[in-house]
Computed example of a mutant assay.
Amino acid sequence: MSDSLDANQPFISFQRTCPIIRIFDEEKAREFYVDFLGFQLDWEHRYGDNFPLYMQVSRAGLVLHLSGHHGDASPGSNTFVVMKGVQAYQKELIAKHYIYMKPGVETLPWGLQMEVTDPFSNRIRFCEQDDGGEASV
Score class of each variant (00 low, 15 high):
1 M>D: 09
1 M>N: 09
1 M>K: 07
2 S>P: 11
3 D>G: 11
3 D>Y: 03
4 S>T: 07
5 L>F: 00
6 D>I: 03
9 Q>T: 00
9 Q>D: 02
11 F>A: 12
11 F>Y: 09
11 F>L: 15
12 I>H: 07
13 S>I: 08
13 S>R: 15
13 S>Y: 12
14 F>Y: 06
14 F>I: 08
15 Q>R: 13
21 I>W: 15
22 R>M: 13
22 R>T: 12
22 R>E: 14
22 R>P: 14
24 F>V: 07
24 F>Q: 14
25 D>N: 15
26 E>A: 14
27 E>M: 02
27 E>V: 08
29 A>W: 07
30 R>V: 15
30 R>H: 08
31 E>P: 00
32 F>Y: 11
33 Y>P: 08
33 Y>F: 14
33 Y>C: 08
35 D>A: 07
36 F>N: 04
36 F>A: 01
42 D>Y: 00
42 D>E: 13
42 D>C: 02
43 W>D: 12
43 W>V: 02
43 W>Y: 15
43 W>E: 09
44 E>S: 04
45 H>I: 06
45 H>R: 11
48 G>R: 06
49 D>T: 01
52 P>W: 07
53 L>A: 05
55 M>K: 06
55 M>T: 09
56 Q>M: 15
57 V>K: 06
58 S>Y: 11
58 S>M: 12
60 A>C: 07
60 A>W: 03
61 G>D: 00
63 V>P: 01
65 H>D: 11
67 S>H: 11
69 H>P: 03
69 H>W: 13
71 G>T: 05
72 D>E: 04
75 P>M: 08
75 P>N: 04
76 G>D: 11
78 N>I: 10
78 N>R: 12
79 T>E: 13
81 V>K: 04
82 V>A: 08
83 M>T: 04
83 M>D: 00
84 K>G: 01
85 G>A: 11
86 V>H: 01
86 V>E: 03
87 Q>V: 14
88 A>R: 07
88 A>N: 10
89 Y>P: 00
89 Y>I: 06
90 Q>Y: 10
91 K>M: 11
92 E>V: 00
95 A>T: 01
96 K>E: 09
98 Y>N: 05
98 Y>T: 02
99 I>C: 09
99 I>H: 14
102 K>T: 12
102 K>C: 06
103 P>V: 09
104 G>V: 13
104 G>N: 14
105 V>I: 10
107 T>I: 10
107 T>F: 02
108 L>W: 02
108 L>V: 07
109 P>G: 01
109 P>K: 02
110 W>G: 02
111 G>R: 04
111 G>H: 04
112 L>T: 03
112 L>Y: 14
114 M>S: 10
114 M>Y: 10
115 E>A: 09
115 E>K: 14
115 E>D: 12
119 P>E: 05
119 P>N: 04
122 N>Y: 08
122 N>D: 13
123 R>H: 11
125 R>W: 03
127 C>E: 08
127 C>L: 07
127 C>F: 03
128 E>Q: 14
129 Q>I: 06
130 D>M: 09
131 D>F: 05
131 D>M: 05
132 G>A: 05
133 G>D: 08
134 E>N: 08
136 S>N: 14
136 S>C: 12
137 V>K: 05
